[in-house]
């Protein structure tokens, strides 16, 4: 945690931003939440409030971005899902056609908390191996109980290890982003004058595939792909 604000000061900034939101001074509320984030006092709650403020102001792109970041950090929550649903309902774009099935690993990682998985794996793995070490030094008659505990720990450690590997792979290879520009043109090639394939609008969630120069290749949920300007999207 950054030392810019003490915990009491951070709480005070948060409450003042909430009060500004209550009196519909959304600019002041947004300013407060962004101050907390920029000084290292973030978290799912601050991101949720920031996303809700953006939504109240009508900035759909940043609203979806903040709410998705809150979801990524803090997992699902009823209020978060409700406001995300409101944001999706306000989106201009409606992605139609055969929706490409989301890959298995991203689905699995989205359903599990990477941090919990990592710590679970580390704990069970280390404990199991240490018990195995102890097991070697014990006389044959005393090894049974220890062996059972070690086997149980291995039973947990192996699947969580596989899940952790999936998280690491998804974290490294899958990059999701949100369209921020009111209108973003996707082109056939990463060139400003290339033929336009389609347009997307603020708030749409896309996947970033690769990047070259000031262009990124985006993929829509239905598999549609094109090159768009990098500054028009923000990674979650």
């Amino acid at each position: 945690m950054s030392g810019y604000y003490s915990p009491e000061e951070a709480q005070d900034v948060f409450l003042k931003a909430n009060e500004a939101y209550a009196r519909e001074d959304y600019a002041a509320a947004q300013d407060g939440y962004e101050k907390l984030l920029s000084h290292g006092h973030g978290g799912a709650d601050v991101l949720y409030n920031l996303g809700t403020t953006h939504l109240a102001r009508g900035d759909l792109g940043r609203a979806v971005l903040s709410l998705e970041q809150a979801k990524k950090q803090g997992g699902r929550a009823p209020d978060l899902e409700a406001n995300l649903a409101v944001a999706r309902a306000r989106q201009v774009d409606k992605v139609v056609g055969a929706t490409a099935e989301e890959e298995f690993l991203p689905r699995v990682t989205a359903a599990t908390d990477g941090t919990v998985v990592a710590w679970t794996f580390l704990g069970t793995w280390v404990a199991a191996l240490l018990l195995l070490l102890v097991w070697r030094w014990l006389k044959p008659g005393r090894r049974t109980g220890l062996g059972i505990v070690a086997a149980l720990l291995f039973t947990v450690a192996v699947p969580t290890g596989a899940l952790l590997a999936a998280h690491a792979w998804v974290d490294e290879t899958v990059h999701e982003a949100v369209v921020l520009s009111p209108t973003l043109v996707a082109r056939e090639l990463p060139q400003p004058g290339a033929r336009s394939i389609f347009e997307v609008h603020a708030g749409l969630k896309v996947r970033l595939l690769e990047e070259t120069g000031r262009f990124v290749r985006i993929r829509l949920p239905n598999g549609l792909e094109g090159w768009a300007e990098r500054e028009g999207v923000a990674e979650i």
Partner: peptide, 24 residues
């Protein structure tokens, strides 16, 4: 309509996932 903002926050500093930390 929008759900209200949260009135309490648990502040978390931005951090790397555990498996990316040097000790892991």
């Amino acid at each position: 309509g929008l759900r209200p903002v949260r009135y309490q926050a648990r502040f978390v500093a931005p951090s790397e996932p555990p498996w990316k930390r040097s000790f892991f």
